[in-house]
């Protein structure tokens, strides 16, 4: 499982301030910590970056790679910024990844970039219209993206399909659809297609203390479904690895010694699988 460390995002205040003032300190510190925690790649999310995106991405890639010997996942919709980052990326430590293309024609040029720079690329299974309703719609869009990738000369083994994780607090049904989609995507090619998720969106909008719980058990279910990579908090994912046997036991209906943990796992799995309706206080019921 490839963990793409999620912490360098413009959404976080400290990171945004460091990006704006080009202060390498916080960026490198966060990058190092994520590497130590087990990230195999570092996500650099600079947002839409309409002004100065090229400089910023270039600075981010070099700043990160000065501190850690890892490839970078370049996360922006700004194509010029992507190309600027790809140009300076040090491929000695692994190939860069682009986040992301989709089935929206505006995002097709990203595939061209991936081909040109031999980068890995995430294909987000959304089109120009609304969000996909279920796993089947996600797979139909995935097929379109795969066809498009081949058209642009991107090998399918370089494409990571992303079924788009939605918030459980408002779109509970999709938690299961995404797990289903991860299974279906793998069936769409031989060797199986690679898959990736933006994991922590599952718990976006949930109370702070619930977030790591939902992230962890959702990750365990996705891993069980065959997920290849996750943009996630490496620290949390390290905990899942430790608790993995316990989680699998509960998933398979076995009793574990830690009763409190067992109830927490059971209730969370019930919410994720849609067996009980989500509410912020679901663990207290």
């Amino acid at each position: 499982m490839l963990i793409i460390g999620e912490k360098l995002s413009i959404i976080a205040k400290r990171v945004r301030e460091a990006m704006m003032s080009k202060d390498k300190g916080p960026i490198q510190e966060i990058a190092k910590r994520q590497a130590d925690e087990g990230s195999g790649m570092i996500d650099a999310n600079i947002g839409p970056a309409e002004d100065g995106g090229e400089d910023l991405m270039e600075w981010m890639v070099t700043t990160i790679q000065e501190a850690v010997q890892l490839p970078v996942c370049l996360d922006t919709t700004n194509i010029q910024a992507l190309e600027a980052g790809l140009k300076v990326h040090n491929n000695e430590w692994g190939r860069p990844m682009i986040n992301s293309t989709s089935n929206d024609p505006e995002r097709f040029p990203i595939l061209e970039l991936a081909g040109k720079y031999s980068a890995l690329v995430i294909g987000l299974t959304v089109g120009k219209g609304g969000l996909p309703a279920d796993a089947e719609e996600r797979s139909a869009i995935a097929a379109e993206i795969m066809a498009r990738a081949m058209e642009y000369g991107v090998p399918l083994e370089d494409l990571y399909l992303d079924p788009l994780v939605l918030q459980i607090a408002t779109s509970q049904d999709h938690a299961v659809h995404v797990i289903e989609a991860i299974k279906m995507f793998q069936e769409m090619n031989d060797p199986p297609m690679k898959t990736v998720v933006g994991l922590s969106n599952i718990s976006n909008g949930c109370p702070k203390e619930l977030r790591p719980i939902l992230n962890k058990y959702y990750f365990a279910l996705l891993q069980d479904a065959g997920l290849t990579a996750a943009i996630a908090d490496a620290h949390e994912m390290g905990e899942v690895m430790k608790e993995k046997d316990m989680i699998l036991d509960v998933m398979n209906g076995k009793t574990i010694d830690d009763e409190k943990k067992m109830i927490e796992i059971q209730k969370t799995l019930d919410v994720i699988m849609g067996r009980t309706l989500y509410a912020h206080s679901y663990l207290e019921m």
Binding site: L277, A279, H280
Partner: peptide, 15 residues
């Protein structure tokens, strides 16, 4: 008009 918040409010009231 939010099923999850509806459930949450009923939980808070019963708590």
């Amino acid at each position: 008009l939010d099923i999850n918040l509806s459930k949450q409010l009923n939980i808070l009231i019963t708590q």
